[in-house]
Design a protein around this nucleic acid. Sequence first.
DNA 1: GTCATAAAGTCATCCGATGATTTTATGACT
DNA 2: AGTCATAAAATCATCGGATGACTTTATGAC
Lengths: 229, 229
Amino acid sequence: MTYPMRSLNKTNLADTAVDAIRTEILARRWTVGEKLPNEATLSAMLAVSRGTVREAVRVLASQGYIETRQGSGTYVLSTADTTRPLTMARRAGLRDQFEARLALDVEAARLAALRQTPTMVVGLRALLAERGHSGGKDQAAFIARDFAFHKAVIAASQNAVLVGMYEFFSTLIAETIAATLEDDLPEPDMAAHAAIVDAIESGEPDRADAAVRRFMAPVLTALDMLLLS
Amino acid sequence: MTYPMRSLNKTNLADTAVDAIRTEILARRWTVGEKLPNEATLSAMLAVSRGTVREAVRVLASQGYIETRQGSGTYVLSTADTTRPLTMARRAGLRDQFEARLALDVEAARLAALRQTPTMVVGLRALLAERGHSGGKDQAAFIARDFAFHKAVIAASQNAVLVGMYEFFSTLIAETIAATLEDDLPEPDMAAHAAIVDAIESGEPDRADAAVRRFMAPVLTALDMLLLS
DNA sequence: GTCATAAAGTCATCCGATGATTTTATGACT
DNA sequence: AGTCATAAAATCATCGGATGACTTTATGAC
């Protein structure tokens, strides 16, 4: 079984055009607000068809670099990158992804402890009870309940950015694991979960911080073992 | 003077196609690794030309959702929503953005301490010396040097995800500040900067953690004062 | 000088055709 | 039956041309 290389393989014309135009934009060849050459000219400059130019232009527009106005032209919107971090995250290794998620996890727990209320804690305990223990027939349902609990912990931070990022990384990590690892990583037990809620309830951010790190430590060491094999 | 709406105005067919396909992907219509219908079929399904389908497909490919393989087909790479966390982060408040960046900052410093080497520390100290103190004529240059130092600290974590995210949040926060606040937030002094490098050099993650939090604490309290006014 | 109109410029969309690459089917040969 | 080279089919990649929609600019009457 051979796996195809995915990184620096042969590239198609449209992607080459994207790189070429983006490089010029980042090099400030056109200032913000300035008009790019029209499609026909770009087509000639890059020696590709107009359709290919359009594909490249649309990609750059979707990434916030430029904006097309029908009947007028194509204009530079920004010379700063926005979407690269997340595509970067996608291509990164599992260890890096875990570390990033842990960063969000820890900070969310700290904030949750600071902003904790009795109702919030009751809600978390309810979700944890509903989650139950691992052993069961419907594995997918258990994973969903487990995820619901963790998401609630993050939501307790009352920080929309952390919530959004956490969801993204969770999905990403789940996919990476499914794609690379067959073995299951160790699932922290009920006590470890409860410890997080207890720490949040205590209102002490350092304690919440430590609880999350203790929670994740076995998973990370297991991951390292798997990655080294 | 009237300004055109830019958000939910009339949209072109290609963007509509992008949304339609992305929605299906996020709804798990096709699982990861599964093949999408071919261009002709998509063209018929969406009632747009094949060229338009290609533009949409290429946008989604550039965002990491799918991958096209010539001669084979188009396949789902990931169902993790990349656009939502970004737009969410953009719309979020400055406090949320700062908290998210702090999360990355702290974790990066911890990892940097764990993976610290003499050469790395020397490099950080050199950047810090080059950065110098604030008072000067060329404010922009100083900000650039300051940013270079902080980015180097993150890079010392040797985690590509943290680096990418940190850059994103930094520009985001800079834009938000420029758009909302005129007043400058307090700039941590040289001692606070040096404390971070010292902590990393010590190799103790907890110390690095604390140093970063001490570094950011005055900025956060000042921010709270500004936001409350 | 103003303003309606025409003309030119530009992106949006469609269609058809050909090439490149991968996958699958075929069939000969052992 | 199994293996392997070859042909055929499927699919994306790229090209060129044509038409429509929209914006900007030029024109000319008043």
